[in-house]
């Protein structure tokens, strides 16, 4: 190729680069980590899994007793807490005001938006813990980006675990948390999941419920430019969940709700609860003989935002 052609190609690449870098942006201006889009600076999936298992082996897995056969689990996703967390505040207030809710709630990743925001999110977790309840979380891509896995780990200790919910009748539900913060479970977590589902599916659990950040299915453009699992991993997870009788998979990441059924497994993609946007919702999961869900609007844009809006509470 002539030098002139090389020069043309180089010019073309240089012109294209601001667009590509713009698409790659994942945080506030001036706080970009471009390298993270081609190679992780944070620990890999396998490393995070090993560290999580170390904690799990030492501390075991939680069993939570609920008062009724039917119970409500409050679930939020994509809070992206930065300089404000009004919607998380509403979520926490509503959850704590619902005295019949399960003593635990879930956050399906992207707790924070960029760096230095964990304390703002954890203030809400502290409120929940002070009331004698717990929040369980799975990491999202924003939670480990900017090399933040170590901070996430300091707060949450593990990103891959399960917990048992014990019902008054003695029946049990199993919740499994998977770490998909960088769009893959990795080799070790995938193997762990295969063995866990094989073992637990024989133990007579009433429901198997999985929650993870990255969503499996992309069937429309609502997910904007959020990437998800590679196709090989999508096939594998769909098969595993279907084969071992998982009832529902809770996912976030795209910020928009979607319900999809594949191999008799319900994939429920949740809305964001992030501030500053219209259509922010959290979800209440009603777990009984069947599993149902309700999306509850939050946010300053919603009419009646100042009221505590919980369907089961008389004001």
């Amino acid at each position: 190729m002539h030098m002139k052609n090389y020069f043309r190609l180089l010019s073309f690449a240089l012109c294209l680069s601001p667009i590509v870098l713009g698409l790659m942006s994942c945080g506030k201006p001036g706080n970009h980590d471009y390298l993270g889009f081609v190679w992780t600076r944070s620990e890999t999936s396998d490393q995070r899994f090993e560290q999580s298992m170390e904690y799990n082996l030492e501390h075991g897995y939680d069993t939570i007793c609920v008062a009724n056969e039917d119970y409500r689990v409050y679930v939020c996703s994509d809070a992206h807490v930065d300089y404000s967390s009004y919607n998380m505040d509403t979520f926490t207030t509503c959850y704590l005001a619902d005295h019949d809710a399960a003593p635990f709630c879930l956050c399906v990743g992207d707790l924070i938006n960029a760096t230095d925001n964990y304390p703002h999110f954890m203030a809400h977790v502290d409120r929940i813990q002070a009331a004698g309840r717990r929040m369980y979380s799975t990491p999202g891509n924003h939670d480990i980006f900017y090399n933040q896995w170590s901070i996430y780990r300091d707060y949450w200790h593990t990103s891959c675990y399960w917990l048992v919910v014990k019902l008054p009748s003695g029946a049990r539900d199993l919740f499994i948390c998977l770490d998909s913060a960088n769009g893959t479970l990795g080799q070790k977590q995938m193997q762990w999941l295969r063995e866990l589902l094989r073992e637990k599916s024989k133990q007579g659990f009433r429901h198997l419920i999985v929650y993870t950040h990255t969503h499996l299915w992309k069937i429309d453009q609502s997910q904007s430019h959020t990437s998800n699992f590679a196709m090989e991993e999508t096939y594998e997870l769909a098969d595993l969940f279907g084969r071992y009788g998982v009832d529902i998979v809770l996912q976030g990441h795209s910020h928009y709700r979607l319900t999809q059924v594949v191999k008799d497994v319900v994939y429920l993609r949740l809305d964001k609860i992030e501030d500053h946007y219209y259509n922010s919702y959290y979800t209440i999961l009603q777990v009984g003989e069947h599993i149902n869900w309700t999306f509850v609007p939050v946010g300053p844009q919603h009419e009646g935002w100042n009221e505590v809006r919980v369907p089961w509470i008389e004001k």
Binding site: L23, M24, C26, G36, F37, V38, W39, T40, R41, S42, T44, S45, N141, I144, F145, A181, N182, G183, T184, T214, H225, T226, S227, F229, A230, E232, E233
Partner: peptide, 15 residues
Amino acid sequence: VKPAGFFHLDASLYN
């Protein structure tokens, strides 16, 4: 090579 999590996730080598 196929990375996992390219664009808007923490990318790593997948395939």
